[in-house]
Design a protein around this nucleic acid. Structure first.
Length: 81
DNA sequence: CGTGAGCGT
């Protein structure tokens, strides 16, 4: 299950998402999108979880929760296409 | 509302 995470704090990193989501199940990979030239976070990211049911649990539990001083959005990802 | 990179694997 790939998960899209938006409205992250500007200090939030892939490791932070990993720590957050791994509480609900096995996290396969995480990524926070950063501008590769400025180093500024784009304030959104992706989490991939091994188990779909745990992923859904993480989504409903973490969506609209406070993280790094901000309320975050967690939902299913769509591929880049 | 808001959907990703790498640099040669």
């Amino acid at each position: 299950m790939n998960i899209f995470v938006a409205k992250l704090g500007r200090n939030t990193t892939s490791d932070d998402l990993n720590a957050l989501f791994s509480q609900y199940g096995e996290v396969t990979s995480t990524k926070v999108i950063m501008d590769h030239e400025t180093g500024y976070s784009k304030r959104y990211g992706f989490v991939e979880m091994a188990n779909d049911d745990e992923a859904y649990k993480a989504i409903e539990d973490l969506n609209d929760s406070e993280f790094d001083g901000s309320n975050i959005v967690v939902k299913k990802s769509t591929p880049r296409g």
